[in-house]
């Protein structure tokens, strides 16, 4: 079995259709469930493109494609735009159903891994840390929140928009898209930059949140570093947020009983 190549054919996706698909992609996880995962969301997002299949809306090809696209699917929510673009193109090009099914199954993992690395592991923490640095430097609530939302969503929305176009252009050849530096090398670079921002932001956040003098901040930072290293050494076996919840629960008791 061979995969189609990039820019394989003359099919077009009008602006209005693309806009509808993009808006729908913003709700792609709305019907997330443990059976079809985001399969129903994929069908919902791709539906405007399927109206252009022979027979039009409600036609045989339309209904068969919609049924196919509603089956189990799971990937990173932002990168589903690539999948939706590619699958819409495959349906438009009349790719055999069994090949579409095989592709649909195969791209779940890669689009999940690439999106998780780029967004959850690097871009989101990076933007949060920049906003935390702004907070530490004395930014007002509006500036801190707008810094985060503006920066993050510039990347987020651009990724969704670009993904739909790139997926449509690539068709079933999305391996070339996933192989772009954006997904291969940028995540590690962004993560590395984030660590630098974190080193700068954390002491400032500690200072502003506690009002402590530099020496006090140094003590808190040293203890946090030791605690962080210890937690890291557990290799993910203990979720930090749960540990924090129990520690703070115990601290509640101490706060009420000791004084």
């Amino acid at each position: 079995m061979t995969a189609p190549t990039l820019d394989a054919g003359p099919a077009t996706l009008p602006f209005a259709t693309r806009a509808r698909m993009l808006l729908r992609l913003l709700t792609v996880q709305a019907s997330y469930n443990y059976e079809s995962m985001i399969g129903n969301g994929i069908a919902f997002a791709i539906e405007p493109a399927l109206r252009r299949l022979p027979g039009g809306r409600g036609g045989e090809a339309y209904r068969a494609a919609l049924a196919r696209q509603s089956r189990y699917f799971n990937a990173h929510p932002y990168l589903t735009s690539i999948a939706v673009g590619a699958l819409a193109r495959a349906e438009a090009d009349g790719v055999p159903p069994e090949q579409i099914e095989r592709f649909r199954t195969a791209c779940c993992g890669p689009l999940g891994a690439s999106g998780d690395r780029l967004v959850w592991v690097s871009w989101l923490p990076c933007c949060a840390l920049v906003a935390l640095a702004a907070f530490g430097l004395g930014a007002s609530p509006a500036i801190a929140v707008l810094t985060f939302l503006g920066l993050y969503n510039a990347g987020h929305l651009a990724l969704r928009f670009w993904g739909l176009i790139a997926g449509w252009r690539a068709g079933l050849g999305v391996a070339a898209v996933i192989g772009l530096p954006l997904f291969r090398t940028w995540p590690d670079r962004i993560a590395l930059a984030s660590v630098g921002v974190a080193g700068f932001a954390l002491p400032l956040v500690m200072a502003r949140a506690t009002g402590a003098a530099p020496v006090g901040v140094a003590v808190i930072a040293a203890l946090a570093l030791a605690g962080g290293v210890a937690l890291h050494e557990l290799h993910g076996r203990l979720a930090g947020w749960r540990a924090a919840m129990w520690l703070l629960g115990a601290f509640m008791l101490a706060g009420v009983l000791l004084g």
Binding site: R102, S114, L172, I178, R184
Partner: peptide, 16 residues
């Protein structure tokens, strides 16, 4: 093993 494009897809998703 018979589908090179599928293996390529997974290879592309494997981090450096």
């Amino acid at each position: 093993v018979e589908n090179a494009w599928e293996a390529d897809l997974y290879r592309m998703a494997t981090p450096p």
